[in-house]
Amino acid sequence: MTVLVGFVVALGMVVVVPLGLRLMDDEHRRLGPITQIWPVAGLLGAVSLLLERGSFAVVLAGAYALVTAWLAVLALFRLLRRRSVAPVEIAILTAMVAPAIAATSLVAERGGYELFGFGMTVLALTVAHFHFAGFAAALVAGLAASTVRSVASEIAALTVPAGTALVLLGYFTSEEVELVGAAVLTAGMWMLGWVIWRRVRPASPSLVTRWLFAGSALILAATMVLALSWAAGHVWDAVPHLSLTWMAATHGIANALGFAVCGMLAWGRLRQERRHVENAERR
């Protein structure tokens, strides 16, 4: 795993997922324990990236994988409890399951095992993809759909998980399917960015929160052009696309810091602002 991809993955495990877990609705308080333990598990997973491939790295990555499996089980309980396939639920369930897929690839990559015949590069990209498109983007799509009741927000909540799944399917089938997935995911991300820019961002009274939302939405729109050109360039040679190193340095870093981290901070601030308003109204 290259240094840049490793940094992006570590950021997802240690920062993005813990921030995101605190944003999920948890009326039965089942996410509390996993929210508390995740930073430690994420740190173990991040340390595994610093080690040479081998048994010790696999053990650390495996510890992280166990916690992601716990979250996936909670997703199953949520589905059985709510019995809903509304767009917002599909997005949230996708976010809860995605880290387990990423962690499975992480364990295989740290052990040097070609899972399903995939090489180390594909496994490393899968780890990154499912922490950000799988977890962060799906969670934000779910939050947007629960905050803004509109056709656009619901379409985003469906197309982001669908595009993520199609990209994964493309790994097993063909680059053409992966391109279709990238196109669906890009359309969903652009729609999500539009909803955030037009409907979510103006709802905050804080300039800082609005700027965080603005940066998250604009960076998302820009970086998905790179993702689409990357997928198209692997189908048609005439389509220009960046190298893997430059994709990690641009698309990867910008999405991790600009979209995911800024987005999670913005949603957290918006939630606190609304609580303050509710508390003030009660008084």
Rank of each mutant, 00 (worst) to 15 (best):
P87E: 08
L123H: 00
V184I: 12
Q272L: 14
L51D: 04
Y64D: 07
M13P: 08
L218T: 08
L74N: 04
T223F: 03
V88L: 05
M247S: 13
R110M: 08
V73I: 10
V85L: 15
A102W: 09
A57E: 04
S48G: 07
V200N: 00
G117L: 05
L265R: 10
I155E: 04
T223V: 15
A86C: 05
G112S: 04
F7A: 14
V47E: 10
R22Y: 09
T186C: 06
W246F: 08
H276P: 02
P99F: 10
M96H: 01
T250A: 11
T173R: 15
L158M: 13
L179M: 01
S229P: 07
T68Q: 08
D237G: 15
T147D: 09
M224Y: 12
V277L: 13
V14G: 10
S150A: 12
I219E: 01
I155K: 12
A61R: 02
G233S: 08
R198S: 07
Y64V: 07
A75D: 08
G119T: 03
A162Y: 04
P87S: 06
G263N: 10
G163E: 05
G32N: 11
S206T: 05
L66N: 13
G42I: 05
G252R: 05
L168Y: 12
T186Y: 00
V148C: 14
A137C: 08
G111H: 06
I155N: 07
V3G: 00
G62W: 02
I219A: 10
A69D: 11
H276F: 11
A145P: 13
V107A: 13
A91M: 01
A227D: 09
H28P: 01
P99N: 12
V5A: 09
V47C: 08
E27V: 11
L23R: 02
L218E: 00
R275E: 14
R149P: 02
G268T: 05
L11T: 15
A141R: 09
L21F: 03
G193I: 02
R29G: 09
T164F: 07
T245F: 14
A266P: 03
A145E: 11
L71E: 07
N279A: 14
R78G: 01
V3C: 00
T173V: 15
F172N: 07
A260W: 13
V200C: 02
R81A: 14
A133S: 13
G258F: 00
P87R: 06
E52K: 07
G252I: 03
A63D: 03
W236C: 11
R83K: 12
A256G: 04
A260C: 14
R82S: 15
E109L: 13
R271E: 15
L244I: 14
L31P: 02
V16Y: 01
L185W: 06
A157N: 05
